[in-house]
């Protein structure tokens, strides 16, 4: 007797497969545009290019004229002589004096930098300007960190208007 073969039903496929195809195409597309690190910006005023002191002659105004130079030795502060603090160097040239905040453990002492800025801010509540300069080989990340410390926390800003100056003055 001839054996009747069971007729196989045609396989129609899963209805989810087109959606799967779409999802598979979307994933690389979204992976390309995905941002896993958020980027922020820091406003900076255009650098004052001249190597001469960047502000008005200090004795002709009452402003603080805070200038901080970052060197390989540490931080050097300069202000209007009328507002000079006892811990600040009296020298007019950065190169001729030691740093006001020397490096600690071969790194810039940012905690002390903040303390000094807080001290200055306490006496000059309205002042928001700071001029930052650095030696040519100081790295960008050190500058950004100095800007972060200068700006202070958003709820209690310190000196948040940053102007760069070329090199050290």
């Amino acid at each position: 007797m001839a054996k009747k073969r069971r007729q196989e039903e045609p396989y129609e496929g899963d209805p989810l497969i087109p959606i799967m195809n779409l999802v598979c195409m979307l994933i690389p597309l979204l992976l390309y545009g995905a941002v896993f690190v958020r980027f922020m910006t820091l406003t900076v005023n255009a650098p004052k290019i001249s190597r001469a002191p960047a502000q008005q002659p200090p004795d002709q105004n009452e402003a603080l004229n805070l200038t901080v130079m970052i060197t390989d030795q540490g931080f050097h502060f300069k202000v209007n002589p009328k507002h000079r603090m006892s811990w600040m160097s009296q020298a007019t040239e950065t190169a001729s004096s030691g740093p006001d905040i020397p490096k600690k453990d071969d790194d810039w002492d940012f905690d002390e930098f903040r303390r000094k800025l807080l001290e200055l801010k306490a006496d000059h509540r309205e002042e928001r300007n700071i001029i930052l300069g650095a030696e040519d080989d100081i790295q960008f990340e050190v500058l950004i960190k100095a800007m972060d410390y200068s700006r202070g926390p958003p709820e209690e800003p310190l000196f948040d208007v940053v102007t760069l100056t070329r090199g050290v003055v």
């Binding site: 690190v37 980027f39 922020m40 900076v44 255009a46 650098p47 990340e141 950004i144 760069l164 070329r166």
Partner: peptide, 29 residues
């Protein structure tokens, strides 16, 4: 992050000469 301050000022100066006035540094959160 390791760019020298000198190069940053050169770029800012050049951009300033090309009439750019407002600068923002970009950093990661």
């Amino acid at each position: 992050s390791g760019t020298s301050y000198r190069l940053v000022t050169e770029v800012l100066y050049t951009a300033g000469q090309a009439e750019f006035e407002k600068f923002k540094f970009v950093a990661a959160e």
